[in-house]
Amino acid sequence: MKIAGKAIVFGDDINTDVIIPSKYLTTLDPKELAKHAMEGMDPSFADKAKEGIILVAGKNFGCGSSREQAPIALKYAGVRCVLAEFFARIFYRNAVNIGLPVLEAPGVSKAVNDGDFLTVNLEKGEILNETKGEVMKAVRLPEFILEILKDGGLINHLKKKIGGK
């Protein structure tokens, strides 16, 4: 799986309240959630992400509550992949489960600037920064997580597995 897009860079400890403020949790419509993605940090984010972007962040991305609405809001706003130094545990799982690729890449938040054009090779765990002409290593995803992501999330993945039997 190759994913390409412009980078939007954030800092450390971005929590789920910033990613999707709790006042929007009553809606389960992903498109509605997407409108408010990262609103706590940058109200114009949804607009900037529309074209499809790669979100780059520092340490502990997605900390706070276990709300699944956080990765859903990002995904439907146009985030194709999140690269971070490391993720909060439940966010990481929820992202994979709803089919949003997440990659841990130590050093990434320093090496990438806002607006750099990135190509991520999920299988290889490689990030190509085309703007700077640099290649970075990320922590490679295990095979079965790749499978879940390729299927677009856990529910589809299971449906396929069960249907294929």
């Binding site: 276990s66 439940i90 929820n94 489960n97 709803i98 856990l154």
Partner: peptide, 10 residues
């Protein structure tokens, strides 16, 4: 350990 709802469905 705690997990989300979709994962619980699985």
């Amino acid at each position: 350990t705690g997990i989300g709802s979709t994962e619980m469905a699985a």
